[in-house]
């Protein structure tokens, strides 16, 4: 299995990257929600996520924050006290409930998937 990775063509590498980003896309919401138990503004959130190994491009993160706010999972507030005005986002009550639910779903899913993969590898 491991050696085969080395002989992938460029085309295959692109294909795998496409699949990986598809896989990641579904996890973005959980990643974002997980970091917003305390208020953060977009760029700080992007840095936190990157530092924790889950980088999200700002061009994706910012629209996502808006959408989550519109869906009622986040609330936002402009902070104008500092040098620059920044918009801070934080989990709403609903958002927190949904986040917890999503965590449980994710754990089950990951567990089941690992079962599938490990059985295949044996």
């Amino acid at each position: 299995m491991g050696t085969r990775w080395l002989v992938m063509s460029d085309e295959q590498i692109d294909f795998v990257q496409g699949l990986v980003s598809e896989l990641r896309r579904g996890t973005l919401t959980i990643s974002v929600l997980s970091q917003l138990t305390s208020p953060k503004y977009g760029y700080a959130l992007a840095e936190t996520l990157e530092a924790k190994g889950v980088p999200i491009e700002p061009g994706t993160l910012y629209p996502l924050l808006r959408r989550l706010e519109k869906q009622g999972l986040l609330t936002s507030e402009w902070e104008t006290a500092g040098t620059k005005p920044r918009k801070y986002y934080v989990l709403s009550g609903d958002g927190l409930n949904i986040y917890r639910q999503m965590c449980a779903e994710w754990k089950t899913m990951a567990e089941n998937l690992n079962n599938l993969i490990e059985r295949e590898e044996q």
Partner: peptide, 14 residues
């Protein structure tokens, strides 16, 4: 207006 303001902040940070 709101998005523009937020994006301006983002570009500044980046």
């Amino acid at each position: 207006a709101d998005i523009e303001k937020e994006l301006a902040g983002l570009i500044d940070d980046m």
